[in-house]
Design a protein around this nucleic acid. Structure first.
Lengths: 148, 148
DNA sequence: TTCCTTGCAAACGATTTGCATTGGA
DNA sequence: TCCAATGCAAATCGTTTGCAAGGAA
């Protein structure tokens, strides 16, 4: 077999295996769907995409396991609902932009140069508050093309 | 009377009055406490600070009124709990840094120059996604001096 | 007086958990 | 086989709401 590029899902599952976390149909299903998604999704949205193949309580447990093992990341949107997406080491560092009218959220990228600049500002500002900065989250708010 | 600098609370109340929103003890109390706070607080924290002077349900209504009238801003922390703080037009634009170990959140400022740079990046990146950017939120994560 | 606001209790919705059962390695 | 994962139902917890009583303008 020639060295083939591993899919995101494969990488994630290998990571889990190495952590001693079992691969199960539900986990694979969630990883597959999220790797295909354009942005972060709520448990409810994932449940709909999966057509309830995984009951909500199990889905939450799945999302919890995947998050605490570093394969997914969780944050809370403007309505306070948890949204999940593949971890940055699988997708690359990125940000979000949310439409303040319809609430849709999209991934967004900054140039490497911009990221470097932001990181430098962040380290600096954090240090002056006595923090060692380990990461940042820059979310934009605006009006999407449909709502504009 | 000489022109005296208006307090943040006064400014907020005048703003409310102009919007036809009544001034009540509960609203004044919440504004006073939040204007003294170092950072954003949850309803529960405010309730404790106020020693339950305002019942939780009324407190939530108060926070809701103040938020929807532009005097407070609400966001959800890492645990998904709503946190409130005075709106930016009252406190000035700023960011937050949260300790990933103890969860404490502090306000943090960037220089005007840095803000300008960030805003420029944001506008640019948003535009390329078809959005008109109206604001941004840059939250830092790190370890505070105690937890470091 | 006229609405708006409050307080209490009940309702809600997202998320979590207990427990018996099933299934992966 | 053995321990972890699942499904269901019930429990939590932050937050919201209905309704009658109280209060600001």
């Amino acid at each position: 077999m020639s060295a083939q590029r591993r899919s995101t899902v494969d990488l994630a599952e290998e990571h889990l295996r190495r952590s001693g976390v079992r691969t199960t149909p539900a986990r694979r299903l969630v990883l597959e769907k999220l790797s295909r998604a354009r942005g972060p999704h709520t448990a409810d949205e994932i449940n709909i995409i999966l057509r309830s193949a995984v009951p909500l309580s199990s889905l939450y447990r799945t999302l919890s396991v995947l998050s605490s093992n570093g394969v997914l990341e969780r944050f809370h949107d403007g309505a306070g609902v948890a949204r999940y997406e593949l971890a940055e080491w699988l997708t690359g560092h990125h940000h979000h932009i949310t439409c303040s009218r319809c609430g849709s959220t999209r991934d967004i990228d900054f140039s490497q140069e911009t990221e470097t600049t932001i990181r430098r500002f962040a380290d600096q500002a954090g240090a002056s508050a006595g923090f060692r900065v380990t990461g940042h989250r820059l979310d934009l708010e605006g009006l999407c093309s449909q709502c504009r």
